[in-house]
């Protein structure tokens, strides 16, 4: 079966991570990224197959970059795919995102610990 020669054998593949029934989101940002995606889809900004394709692409790209892809980086790929898709659909530009990210960074550095971080109005 020459077609299968380049695929790893089961023994060469890394072990699966195991988990108990943990929380569905490890950190709040994962939940936010998830919810934005569902909402934009429900509002008709993209189809679910379009989304699944971008997510698959993001996962494949991360793997090619050396991500062991053990499930714990899943929402990072998710976020990457969402940023790609909103730019592709013309909802936002990559520049918008970078500028706004820098504004949040400045705001977080200007905020004393324990207080809510807010953007100045001109951000």
């Amino acid at each position: 079966m020459s077609a299968e020669r380049n695929l790893p054998t089961p023994a060469e593949l890394p072990a699966m991570p195991r988990d108990a029934d943990g929380p569905v989101f490890a950190e709040p940002w994962q939940a936010q990224a998830f919810a934005m995606t569902l909402w934009l889809h429900e509002q008709g900004h993209f189809t679910w197959p379009e989304w699944a394709e971008r997510l698959s692409d993001a996962i494949a790209a991360a793997q090619a970059d050396g991500d062991p892809d053990r499930g714990d980086t899943y929402y990072l790929h998710w976020l990457q795919a969402l940023e790609t898709l909103v730019a592709e659909k013309g909802l936002l530009t990559s520049d918008d995102l970078l500028r706004r990210k820098a504004a949040w960074d400045r705001a977080s550095h200007a905020t004393p610990h324990g207080q809510p971080i807010v953007l100045p109005p001109d951000a």
Binding site: Q32, L40, L97, S108
Partner: peptide
């Protein structure tokens, strides 16, 4: 240590959500 800190990922999510 006396100011807030957001990770790079948190900043990206905040940027995305606030712009949208």
């Amino acid at each position: 240590a006396d100011h807030s800190h957001l990770s790079d990922t948190e900043l990206r999510v905040r940027a995305l959500e606030s712009l949208l």
